[in-house]
Design a protein around this nucleic acid. Structure first.
Lengths: 314, 314
DNA sequence: AGTCTCCATAAAATTAAATTATTCAAAGAA
DNA sequence: TTCTTTGAATAATTTAATTTTATGGAGACT
């Protein structure tokens, strides 16, 4: 190995001698024997081809070269100490970054609260939230750009095996109507009633939309017969459209909690129809898991998970 | 020994892997085997309790902790390189300081030329000239404040043994007269003629004065009978006094070269009287000798030394 | 599947470093 | 002065750390 002309231990010894003015005291300070100190300094002097200490007098005095080296020595050792501290902080969650992925829905309505709770407990860990499609989120988790993510849709098959997918919570997609809509008075709708509605939906690319379509189809509805008034690409836009009486929609309950309690949107019940999807936590088991990620998974997520989630038992 | 959590070698390895993206390539780069690299990184990870590399994929990728450590790693290694360069510069005389001591006479008339020559050859070494009494210069050499010195007088006895004293050159103390002085026409003076002169001398504390007094006394003269017109504490002042016709004086020839060739001062010869003193180089053998000091002694001093000086043969 | 590349692991060999014991030199005290 | 004490260098031994050789396994590319 092409050698470095000195070691950190040698520098530590140098510093100790300079501070104590004596080889022996330095040895005591470092809990080694005096010959060990002598030998290391001799090695150092040999390798750098300089004399570091004047051993003439009662005190070990630095030569010019020694003083020069000591300056660098202090700087180097300080950097080392800093590095140690930084690593310690990272280990004890006093630093570092946690990158979380989420879909539009969870990213908008769920993650902010989770992240808030996390940062209450670990205010020194910075959290980055990346809202992307299920597909892209999956890939990001796969290649390590995202530590963990919550998705509501189906992963591409190849990723399904690569990643760890843990069911985490159930998200109900509620049928919502404008509060003054004639049907909003009925206690319970029938499936057939849906054909009478005008729908404001997410665009057909969106995961949530696909999930809704599939569930409706599975429950025997002919989604071709449903009237789609307009397709928007933002839940907030849809909410506003519904509130303005432009139509009905299936929306995640988490996204309309405020509107429901304010009464500006009406949630309808449809007989024999449950539109629910599983929210899933995905991580990459073949990659390094940061402490922040671990903690988030173990301590934060369960507090928001439905009771039957496997996360409860991690 | 209270251990440091990492070694410089480990940092070097870390850096190499990060740069090469591979344990194997890093090993090749550092001329070690691959297991050596693996082991060291494992040690590092164990000691810091972190994971540094993601070994999953094709490339060895840094984890967050790894990136953090790498930052410090680079800084630390850079400081190490800098330290090496600084030491090398010192060794190759591209840096450092040489502290030279001298008496009034040599410091004024000799050292400037020497230092000029030295700095022509080693322009990066800064030189400091300290002009003090023989006594104080001796002590400074003894305790390392001065690397080497040239003195014209006698050292205190205790220092005599402690320091290395090398005869270096002979300095003639010439009897000088005002050029229009009646005696300046005589080819050779007799000792008795000295009693007829008015002397302008250094003050009785000065080394040069003591030397002159002693030599005159040794050659049989009664120095009490010599008429001292005035005592000044600067050679330049004495030179001016002599030139102005105020009296005669014994002055180091090195200090009056210009005046002699200009004819403004007359140098007289006295039969059976040679007033000469040895200029001596003193160093401290029990102390570290800087490269600059070595070079000055070996290469510069001989060029100004009289032919028979021992320095010729060093 | 087969082959290659890369990393991990184990055991052995080498090398470096620490310790004990001793010597040497300088400093302080009798 | 001489004796004693203290600090540093040296030598020999032991101990520990590092490297190497040799080998096994997992993923990637053909």
């Amino acid at each position: 190995m092409p050698e470095l002309p000195f070691t950190l231990d040698q520098l530590r010894i140098l510093k100790a001698i300079a501070a104590q003015g004596s080889f022996k005291k330095a040895a005591d300070l470092l809990y080694v024997t005096q010959p060990a100190v002598s030998l290391q300094i001799q090695n150092l002097e040999k390798q750098l081809e300089i004399t570091i200490f004047d051993r003439g007098g009662r005190k070990a005095l630095l030569t010019e070269a020694g003083r020069l080296l000591l300056e660098y020595c202090e700087r180097i050792l300080n950097q080392c100490d800093e590095a140690c501290k930084a690593i310690e902080d990272l280990n004890s969650l006093k630093g570092g970054t946690l990158v979380i992925g989420a879909s539009q829905t969870t990213g908008t309505y769920l993650m902010p609260r989770m992240i808030g709770l996390f940062r209450q407990n670990y205010p020194d860990v910075s959290v980055q939230l990346q809202v992307h499609s299920t597909r892209r989120t999956g890939w990001s988790v796969a290649n390590g750009q995202i530590d963990l993510a919550i998705i509501g849709g189906q992963l591409p098959g190849d990723l399904e095996n690569l990643l760890q997918v843990i069911p985490y919570a159930t998200d109900e997609l509620a049928l919502v109507l404008p509060s003054k809509h004639p049907l909003s008075n009925k206690k319970e709708l029938l499936k057939e009633d849906l054909y009478k509605l005008n729908f404001v939906t997410l665009d057909s690319q969106s995961t949530t939309r696909k999930v809704v379509d599939k569930l409706l189809q599975d429950s025997g509805l002919d989604i071709q017969r449903l009237k789609i008034e307009m397709e928007l690409n933002s839940l907030e836009a849809i909410k506003n459209a519904v509130q303005s009486g432009l139509g009905a929609s299936f929306l995640p309950v988490v996204s309309i909690e405020r509107e429901l309690s304010a009464g500006t949107i009406h949630k309808a019940f449809v007989a024999d129809l449950e539109v629910k999807r599983e929210l899933k936590l995905i991580t990459n088991p073949s990659r390094y898991t940061s402490r922040a990620s671990e903690v988030f998974k173990k301590n934060i997520l369960p507090q928001f998970a439905s009771l039957e989630s496997p996360l409860r038992h991690i």
